[in-house]
Design a binder for these strands. Structure first.
Length: 772
DNA sequence: CAGTGAGCGAGCTTCCGCTTGACTT
């Protein structure tokens, strides 16, 4: 019997495919890339024509060992990584790392996980496409060069530990520039005239809302118009109906799933991916990292059957969708339920809701258009050229709307969009009320996480597997924050005409209330400004698209990857060196005003540890005082008063047990200090006004909690304690912690038990010591 | 865990794209 080893990228895929193939096939997954550039240094020898230094990724050593063994015992090895640039490189790294021989190795690829597709792939193996591999190497090395040369420049010129890269820096730029647009935006107002008319519909009276086809720029004009309408007649001049159609949206890709889960379910991008991963691993949906809107023939057939059975034949319309996305590689199907006959699934609430969304979107994509009838009614006013217009929309055939309608990021348009009462040309209408409302132009929208993903995808920046990590990176680096910010009150004029009487009032509305939107931080703005000024090419929104074109030429075998890198790298590297030499440290320093108490100048700027305020001159004889800005404060928007408050800490609130009680603010927020012990101040207490009695209360509360925290202590060794932690009981010994094995009750542990556990186990690693 | 902000210098940070668990005090 011939032994075959098939290597795919994901374990869930391996399981499915294993079921399709006979017992002479072993299917294993390699878990994505197994090798990468060394992280110790640049990982690329620029002098030697960009020679890459690949090493097996530390977390893949084990799996590579297993694969080596399996490969050794097999007659044929089938490399079935994805059919795209990265997949080809994975196959090549497998070939090299496992030491596979050309004669016994086959490269196969499929775009959907169906039995037919797999068998067809096995019947049509090919050789590795080294041009495609070279395109991947160019992509990988370019990203490394950009990231590992730009980042150290930022450490030197702005702040340590910052980062920059082809994808993340442009993502931040989008947020920074949107905020600039909003800051520079001035709302312009105009007056919208709206009329409610009374219409007889059989025996019932109905209201018809119509809007004037002209807006007035000033209150006087609007008021004047209403006055002139006191003694006029309204006549229906035209009733126009026309048919319209709506088509369903294509099946989900990663990006559209993230957008709709955000809009309809309020999921963050990371949450969507976590839930989707669970659905995928349990076999409920197809692969969730995809840029393809394509459905397999089998899926379309399932959808057809499902729609026919549930809604009837007239609701079926099968469709093949084409991807329009820039740089799409289409190695997988669209995201869809594995079995469309499963309308719902078992599981937790998030999983059920996301599955429901995917099921509906997939089914709707294979359903008939909705047929609508749109009606426009024009109402004339005697002696006036302006007309009132009413719009209505009636669904004649719901089609896919029965199941699913895509949401939009923008607010829904105002006005009546339902059924209009029956109207005839020439019919006279009675006005019940006419209003003139001051309306303001809207500032540009801030990005949500999902809206940013959409924008990145449009620009061809990033891949389905990196959207969520990118969004998380730019927040982790504190370039942007996801926040809720309250809106501001704005007043507007509201004038009405009713029963030939005009009344004027000023009403209030809240505008600009933002929830879960991305805002740039001071650092984000500073880094973006610095990069745009010095590396305009990389920060250009078309940079990725431009290099992608070159990667494509490499993939076609018409350009050597090292030549491409040469063209890019040397001018880039020169700019790095130039900026290293010739630019000053970027501080964003701003003189805010003077302290009334001392007459000293107050500055705000970015220090080595982030945004800070400074009281006094840096070069003065008396050293200036410093204070870090609080979370949520920005050097752009902070006021002088808020800055002065920062210097009111630390303050002594009084004496307790013969020792001073101090209130201050540290890295982790405001705290109380007493006898070299620290007590966090709850958010409800204001560090500037909290009194001695309250701080004593806080101290005693913590002391009490600490007593409860200790489950056991031992007279034999005061350093050993059994404590109650966030994740249950554990053993604490100096700075080291030990897990308590299953089956043991913490309170019953004797000194000898504890000693035995400590001897038999390694202490748990703390995050501060070892990073992931 | 609880501020730091001069200057020196050791030793650290960092990219994008493929993939999952292991683990957190």
């Amino acid at each position: 019997m011939t032994k075959n080893l098939v290597i795919v990228e994901s374990p869930a895929k391996a399981k499915t495919i294993g079921g399709f193939l006979g017992s002479d096939f072993t299917v294993k997954s390699c878990m994505g890339h197994i090798a990468d550039l060394s992280k110790k240094d640049l990982g690329v020898d620029v002098e030697k024509g960009f020679e890459p230094n690949y090493i097996v990724s530390p977390d893949k050593k084990k799996i590579v060992g297993e694969l080596k063994k399996l490969a050794h015992d097999s007659d044929f090895i089938w490399l079935a990584s994805d059919e795209d640039r990265e997949g080809e490189a994975i196959a090549w790294h497998l070939m090299e790392t496992l030491g596979l021989k050309k004669e016994s190795t086959r490269r196969i690829a499929f775009h959907e996980i169906t039995k037919t597709a797999i068998l067809e792939a096995i019947a049509n193996p090919r050789e590795l496409d080294m041009n495609l591999v070279d395109a991947q190497q160019a992509r990988r090395i370019l990203d490394r060069l950009v990231g590992f040369e730009l980042s150290p420049l930022l450490w030197k010129k702005i702040k340590p530990s910052l980062s920059a890269g082809r994808v993340q820096s442009v993502a931040v730029r989008l947020i920074v520039e949107r905020e600039d647009e909003i800051r520079n935006f001035t709302a312009v107002s105009s007056y919208r005239i709206s009329g409610d008319f009374v219409v007889h519909d059989g025996k019932k009276l109905k209201t018809l809302n119509a809007e004037l086809n002209k807006r007035f720029q000033t209150k006087e004009e609007a008021l004047n118009f209403l006055k002139q309408c006191m003694d006029v007649q309204y006549t229906v001049e035209d009733v126009e109906t026309r048919p319209a159609r709506k088509s369903p949206a294509p099946p989900f890709t990663t990006s559209t799933l993230q957008q709709e889960a955000s809009r309809k379910l309020g999921f963050s991008v990371a949450n969507t991916m976590r839930v989707a991963q669970e659905l995928y691993e349990s076999g409920k949906i197809t692969y969730m990292r995809t840029d393809s809107v394509n459905l397999s023939d089998m899926a379309i057939a399932m959808a057809k059957k499902e729609v026919t059975a549930t809604f009837g034949e007239e609701y079926v319309k099968t469709r093949k969708y084409a991807t329009k996305t820039k740089g799409a590689q289409e190695a997988h199907e669209a995201i869809r339920p594995t079995y469309l006959s499963n309308k719902s699934i078992e599981g937790d609430r998030s999983g059920k809701r996301l599955y429901d969304l995917i099921w509906k979107r997939t089914i709707a994509s294979q359903m008939a258009d909705a047929e609508l009838e749109k009606t426009n009614v024009t109402i004339g006013i005697t002696g006036k050229t302006e007309k009132f217009v009413a719009r209505g929309e009636v669904i004649r055939f719901d089609g896919f709307l029965k199941v699913y309608m895509e949401s939009s990021d923008e607010d829904s348009t105002e006005g009546q969009e339902g059924v209009l009462p029956p109207l005839k040309t020439g019919e006279k209408l009675l006005l019940s009320i006419m209003t003139a409302q001051q309306k303001f132009t809207q500032q540009p929208y801030r990005y949500t996480e999902a809206a940013l993903v959409k924008k990145l995808e449009e620009l061809g920046i990033g891949r389905p597997s990196t959207y969520a990590p990118t969004i998380s990176t730019i927040q982790k680096r504190e370039y942007v924050v996801k926040e809720e910010r309250p809106g501001v009150q704005r007043s507007y004029d509201f004038i009405s005409l009713k029963d030939k009487k005009i009344s004027e009032e000023v009403r209030n509305e809240t505008v600009g209330n933002e929830k879960g939107k991305l805002f740039p931080t001071d650092i984000g703005g500073l880094v973006t400004g610095f990069l745009v000024q010095n590396f305009d090419n990389i920060m250009d929104y078309n940079f990725t698209a431009t290099v992608e074109e070159e990667f494509d030429v490499i993939a076609e075998g018409k350009l050597a990857w090292k030549d491409m890198l040469k063209e890019f790298y040397f001018p880039f590297h020169e700019k790095i060196e130039g900026a290293m030499e010739n630019t000053k440290r970027v501080k964003g320093e701003k003189l805010l005003g003077t302290d009334p108490a001392t007459g000293l100048n107050i500055y705000v700027k970015i220090g080595r540890f982030g945004p800070m305020a400074q009281l006094g001159e840096s070069d003065a004889e008396e050293k200036p005082r410093f204070s870090a800005l609080k979370k949520g404060q920005s050097i752009d928007t902070i006021s002088l008063e808020e800055t002065l408050d920062l210097f009111k800490l630390p303050r002594v609130v009084g004496d307790f047990e013969g020792t001073e009680v101090l209130v201050s603010a540290g890295k982790f927020g405001p705290y109380v200090k007493h006898k070299s012990a620290f007590y966090s101040l709850p958010a409800s207490d204001d560090p500037l006004s909290v009194n001695l009695a309250r701080t004593i209360e806080i101290i005693e509360l913590k002391r009490h909690a600490d007593i409860k925290k200790v489950i056991r202590e031992y007279p034999e060794d005061a350093d050993i304690k059994v404590l109650n932690g966030r994740y249950g009981p554990y053993i604490a010994f100096k700075k080291e912690n030990y897990k308590i094995p299953r089956g043991k009750t913490a309170a019953d542990l004797t000194y000898d038990d504890v000693k035995a556990i400590m001897a038999a186990n390694e202490p748990t690693k703390s995050k501060s010591k070892k990073k992931k």
